[in-house]
């Protein structure tokens, strides 16, 4: 009996919230307080309760009745006078909606990439976007006054402080703080002092990867990244590793995949080459190991990095990189 009363009380309190007009208020009154209402029905059940418990339940029921009455009164006071016409139910009318959320298309792309590498045993690491020259360049084997620095136009914020131009400094910070083995990916924002237009922006995202252990070889680098490419782009895609130059890896490679717009025949997107560059990678340069205090004789490793905007642009066919940072909801809701 006690539980029944409690349940009814909760329901009455809940129901009053949804009362929107006078008609509904009257329905509410009839449901609970009318002579054949639900509280009256409980009073009828008092007869079946043991006589010594009747006064206690009677008191509780009275409390319930006055509680419901006061709920009804307060609700009634909120309504202005006037008749309300209630529509008949038309199930073809749209329902009451909820706001729908979504994560940013760049983050979705990044999360998918992260998921693949975490599945292959990589951990996550993070580092500052505002870096010093040492972590962004020096420790990564960019000698001072070397033209390799011109590969990345830099924003400076102080004498020895800059906005990182790539996520590679996180490699340095991870290795400075952890002895080998290390197997981690490091996503984040990077900045380049480049003109803003439809194809380039002064800020973008990269995912960096690093794997260091005894006996890690260029073969492992190829195997891991081919596995990633197949998981992310599909297993039927053709790919190729091409020699290139990065100061912090050697040998270095750019990975290309068959242009998925033209299927390799050559189009505007792939500059008629039939190939799209999607990833830079290589074996960690011994000088990088030396700068973090790893012994390059004992440990080898590979590193890689890719630009998220470029991947998302290719994937969704987005024609203007600036759309990512404008955050027009009509753009965001498409992903």
């Amino acid at each position: 009996m006690q539980e029944t009363i409690e349940r009814l009380r909760s329901q009455a309190e809940a129901d009053i919230q949804s009362v929107q007009d006078r008609t509904e208020l009257e329905e509410y009154r009839v449901t609970y307080l009318a002579r054949k209402g639900r509280i009256a029905a409980l009073f009828d059940q008092l007869k079946s309760v043991a006589p010594d418990q009747r006064p206690a339940f009677g008191k509780t029921l009275n409390e319930l009745r006055s509680r419901v009455q006061s709920l009804l009164d307060e609700r009634a006071a909120r309504f202005a006078a006037g008749p309300v016409v209630r529509e008949s139910i038309d199930p073809t009318l749209p329902g009451r909606g909820l706001f729908v959320g979504s994560s940013h298309p760049l983050i979705q792309t990044l999360e998918e990439i992260k998921g693949i590498f975490v599945g292959m045993g990589f951990s996550l690491a993070d580092g500052p976007e505002l870096e010093d020259d040492y972590h962004n360049f020096g420790a990564l084997n960019f000698p001072p006054d070397h033209p390799a620095r011109d590969m990345q136009d830099t924003f400076f914020v102080g004498k020895d402080a800059l906005l990182r131009t790539h996520t590679s400094p996180v490699q340095i910070r991870v290795m400075e703080n952890h002895p080998p083995p290390v197997r981690a990916i490091m996503p984040g924002k990077v900045y380049r002092n480049e003109a803003v237009n439809a194809r380039s922006y002064c800020m973008f995202h990269q995912v960096e990867g690093l794997c260091v252990d005894r006996g890690v070889t260029f073969s492992d680098l190829k195997g891991t990244l081919i596995s990633f490419i197949k998981q992310f782009y599909g297993s039927s895609l053709k790919y190729r590793f091409r020699p290139t130059f990065f100061p912090f890896t050697e040998p270095s490679a750019d990975i290309y995949i068959t242009c998925f717009i033209c299927g390799g025949k050559g189009c505007r997107l792939c500059k008629q080459s039939g190939w799209l560059e999607i990833l830079g990678c290589g074996m960690v340069h011994p000088n990088v190991f030396r700068s973090v205090g790893y012994d390059p004789e004992r440990f080898t490793g590979y590193a890689f990095g890719m630009g998220i905007e470029r991947i998302a642009i290719l994937r969704y066919g987005i024609d203007d990189i600036r759309l990512f940072f404008e955050n027009d909801v009509r753009f965001l809701e498409q992903f």
Partner: peptide, 23 residues
């Protein structure tokens, strides 16, 4: 030739890693 170097996928998964798996 990079293409003539075999690719290997025997990545041992190190579960005792000090870094985080969850962002």
């Amino acid at each position: 030739g990079y293409d003539r170097i075999d690719s290997k996928t025997s990545a041992a998964i190190d579960v005792s890693h000090p870094l985080e798996k969850e962002d």
